[in-house]
Design a protein around this nucleic acid. Structure first.
Lengths: 238, 238
DNA sequence: TCCTAGTTACGTACAGCGTACGTAGTGCGC
DNA sequence: GCGCACTACGTACGCTGTACGTAACTAGGA
């Protein structure tokens, strides 16, 4: 009985409510929704236990009855936005379906720009994550590969989506931030990069720098990356 | 003069020291090394401005002369471990070289397990990052593609390395953590996943679950992912 | 039916965080 | 040699996650 952590490792393993005692005033969904609302409006740093409790209208420490650690609150948030995935019947064209899934994930992250920060770094087993994974496997049914490989495809694709979308969001926020205008900001960056490149220490970087003209088409970069990853698993392309 | 942020957006654009006044007692390298030492020993959460200042042997607020924001301290740390990349003459085999680079990055992250948390989420322009990027472009010289595409290759590869290594580290730390043994921990997870799968809501997931036997070979998964990404850019494989 | 054990609710308190601000001392450039 | 830009750093503020203790409540077993 002693020396054991009282709290289960993962929140999804603990039941949402137990029989005894007063009825809980809130559901996990309530709490997740409140946290997501705050994060959307004020950024992830606005999400504190106190702030969420206030949003719900209860005392700070009451929240700990539902969410043993803040980390678990983050898990609830990820699960909550996972519900925004629209699961529809696979078309039979696995590439098209997976591309659609990826673009949808990107859309969700653009709606909740704090999401990549929470997503990158760990693998989720929340109900909606499992649901989404199941759906992906469904879409991949026409593809003749072992399940293990399909899972690897989904993982790789999700990783790329998260990484790239995180970069898009970071770029957008950098652009929108502070007193600088986009032109000035870019000018500062270019000036710095240019000054580095001009030292002659990075000849190939300099060449790449010269070659590029105009702003980068981030969505294009994203789509190309997706296509490449899909190519890598496509038997017809090998 | 008014209404402008006094601090440059990126720390690399501000010179390390200016002529006037007393000589700074520490270099950026000193500070970065101290922070890295703490993070290696006590984890990233151990890295606070106070703690780093103490490690250096100066007052907390003195640190702010060198590092305007904590975020910049993180940048210094990333740059510092970037120095561990061993830049060697390209062999002429771009695939082998890039594979080596990727494995080396993975090694660095395994030595500094806090690194993925800092790396995922933004694009660095630190001196050592530029040096590494230049080196990658050097390795890719034999590959007949425009620079823009090569840069995309490097970015995609780096993203995959970070994502996968982060997952490896998270898995390892989960295993090593708390009073549970690895067997118990896995048992708990499997039991939870199994219980979900047993609901019948995830038939394909269940099939994937059944198909797999024994522990996952994470390094194998990683290497296969790398090969696939490289394939996707290899003209001879298309 | 009542009792009690397991819950919920939540106020207080603590240690720690990033950092704004003010002051004192130092040494280069004019 | 003067002044100013810089370094150094103590104090203080508002914030964080959360341990702990107490009071109210209710479902299950006797």
């Amino acid at each position: 009985m002693a020396g054991r952590a009282a709290v289960p490792e993962v929140i999804w393993a603990r039941p949402e409510r137990t029989g005894r005692g007063p009825k809980p005033a809130y559901t996990r969904a309530d709490i997740a929704a409140a946290a997501v609302r705050i994060a959307d409006a004020e950024g992830l740093d606005g999400v504190s236990m106190r702030r969420v409790a206030a949003e719900l209208g209860c005392g700070t420490m009451s929240l700990y009855n539902y969410v043993p650690r803040k980390e678990d609150l983050y898990e609830l948030m990820i699960d909550a936005i996972g519900a925004e995935h629209e699961i529809r019947e696979p078309s039979g064209d696995w590439r098209a379906d997976m591309l659609r899934n990826a673009m949808e994930t990107r859309g969700i992250m653009h709606r909740h720009t704090w999401a990549p920060r929470l997503m990158s770094g760990f693998y989720g087993f929340s109900p909606n994550s499992l649901r989404y994974l199941e759906h992906c496997l469904d879409c991949l049914e026409p593809l003749d590969l072992p399940f293990a490989t399909k899972t690897e495809l989904v993982a790789l694709l999700n990783g790329v989506v998260t990484t790239y979308t995180a970069n898009e969001i970071a770029t957008a926020e950098r652009t929108r931030s502070l007193p600088w205008s986009e032109e000035e900001e870019n000018a500062v960056r270019i000036a710095y990069l240019g000054s580095q490149v001009a030292t002659g220490a990075y000849p190939r970087l300099a060449a790449a720098f010269m070659e590029q003209s105009g702003p980068i088409d981030l969505e294009g970069v994203f789509r190309r990356a997706l296509e490449r990853v899909l190519d890598a698993f496509d038997p017809e392309k090998r």
